[in-house]
C-alpha cells in the first residue's frame, strides 16, 4: 500500500509535466493543424537559455522566466520562418521540415555545449515528505504540480474568457471565416506558436532537474510520451491533455515501480493503441472538425 501511494504521487507529478508538454502540442495543433515534431528540440534550446541565465544570475527562477520567454521567441521564429514557408495542403512537408529543424538544433547544441549531460539542480528539495510513514511528494514535486496546474488553468481561462482567446479559437477553428470577421489570423497563428513553445519550455524546465540533466536530446523522451498523451486525450482537447497526462504519468510510474522501467513505454503504447481502436479521435476529442 505504501508503495502504491508513493508511486501514484510520483506519477501525478510526472503526469503534470507530461500534461503541460502535451498541452503545448494541442495549442499548436489547434493554431494551424500541425504536429510540431521540432517541439522538443526547440524547447531544449530554451532550457539551455534558462540554464545560461541561471548560471549568470544565480537564480533558478530568473533562469526559468528567461527560458519561458526564449521558448515564446523561438516559437515565433519557427512559425514565421521555416514553418510558414512549408506548403500546408499535405502534412508531410511540415513533418520533414520539422525533423530537419530538430537535426540542426540538436547538432548545434552539441557543438556549442558538448554532448555530455549537464546536471541541473532543482530549486527545491527532491526528498519526499513522509506522511504516516509513507513517502509521498517532495517539495519540488509539489512545485511542479502547482506550476503546471496554474499554467493550465491560466491557459484555459485565457482561451475561454478573454477577447484574445476568442480570436485564437476562432482563427484555429475556421480561419477564413475568422478573417472575414476581422480577426488577424496570421498574427493569431504566430501567437499560438509562442504560447505553445513557452509552455513546452516550461515543461522542459520542470522535467530536467528530475532526470539525468540537460543534453541536446534531454526532451526527446518527453516529446514521445507527451505526443501519446495528446493523441490519447484528443488533439483538439486541452482538458483531454490534462487528464490523459495524469493518467499516463501514473501508468508509467506504476509499471516502472511494479514491473520494470523498460516496460513503461510499452504500457503507454498499449494504452495508445487501445484508445485509437476504441475512440480514434481521442478520449476527449471534439465532435466537429475544423471548418475551412
Amino acid at each position: 500500500m505504501d508503495r502504491l501511494v508513493f508511486l501514484v504521487a510520483a506519477g501525478l507529478a510526472h503526469g503534470a509535466v507530461l500534461a503541460l508538454f502535451a498541452q503545448s502540442l494541442v495549442i499548436v495543433w489547434r493554431a494551424n493543424r500541425v504536429i510540431n515534431f521540432a517541439q522538443a528540440a526547440l524547447a531544449v534550446v530554451a532550457v539551455y537559455a534558462a540554464l545560461a541565465v541561471t548560471a549568470v544570475s544565480g537564480s533558478w527562477w530568473l533562469g526559468a522566466f528567461a527560458g519561458v520567454v526564449a521558448g515564446g521567441l523561438l516559437g515565433a521564429a519557427a512559425e514565421r520562418g521555416p514553418m510558414r514557408l512549408v506548403p500546408t495542403h499535405t502534412p508531410l512537408p511540415g513533418i520533414i521540415v520539422a525533423i530537419g529543424l530538430v537535426m540542426i538544433l540538436q547538432a548545434g547544441l552539441a557543438i556549442a555545449f558538448g554532448p555530455e549531460y549537464q546536471p541541473v539542480p532543482a530549486p527545491l528539495s527532491e526528498r519526499p515528505f513522509v506522511l504516516a510513514g509513507i513517502p509521498v511528494l517532495s517539495p519540488y514535486d509539489l512545485l511542479v504540480l502547482v506550476v503546471a496546474g496554474l499554467v493550465m488553468a491560466a491557459l484555459a481561462l485565457g482561451f475561454t474568457r478573454t477577447s484574445l482567446g476568442l480570436q485564437l479559437r476562432a482563427a484555429a477553428f475556421a480561419p477564413e471565416t475568422a478573417r472575414l470577421l476581422g480577426v488577424r489570423v496570421s498574427r493569431m497563428i504566430t501567437l499560438g506558436w509562442m504560447l505553445s513553445l513557452a509552455t513546452a519550455a516550461l515543461a522542459g524546465l520542470l522535467l530536467v532537474p528530475t532526470e539525468l540533466g540537460l543534453h541536446p536530446h534531454a526532451l526527446d523522451g518527453l516529446f514521445v510520451q507527451a505526443f501519446a498523451v495528446a493523441v490519447i486525450g484528443g488533439l483538439d482537447s486541452p482538458a483531454g491533455a490534462l487528464l490523459a497526462g495524469l493518467l499516463v504519468g501514473v501508468l508509467v510510474s506504476l509499471v516502472s515501480g511494479y514491473l520494470v522501467a523498460a516496460a513503461a513505454p510499452l504500457a503507454v503504447l498499449a494504452l495508445l493503441t487501445l484508445v485509437l481502436l476504441v475512440r480514434p479521435g481521442g478520449l476527449f476529442s471534439a465532435a466537429k472538425e475544423r471548418a475551412a
Binding site: 477577447s163 476568442l166 480570436q167 476562432a170 477553428f173 472575414l180 470577421l181 480577426v183 465532435a287 466537429k288
Partner: peptide, 30 residues
C-alpha cells in the same frame, strides 16, 4: 469591418463548437 461593412456567408460559417454568445463576440473582439 472598421470601415463599417459586415457580411454574412452563404454557408453560415458559424463556429459550431462555440456558444451563440461567443460567436457574436468574435467580431466585437476585433
Amino acid at each position: 469591418v472598421r470601415a463599417g461593412v459586415s457580411r454574412t456567408l452563404q454557408g453560415l460559417g458559424l463556429f459550431d463548437t462555440m456558444t451563440v454568445l461567443e460567436n457574436v463576440l468574435v467580431p466585437l473582439s476585433t
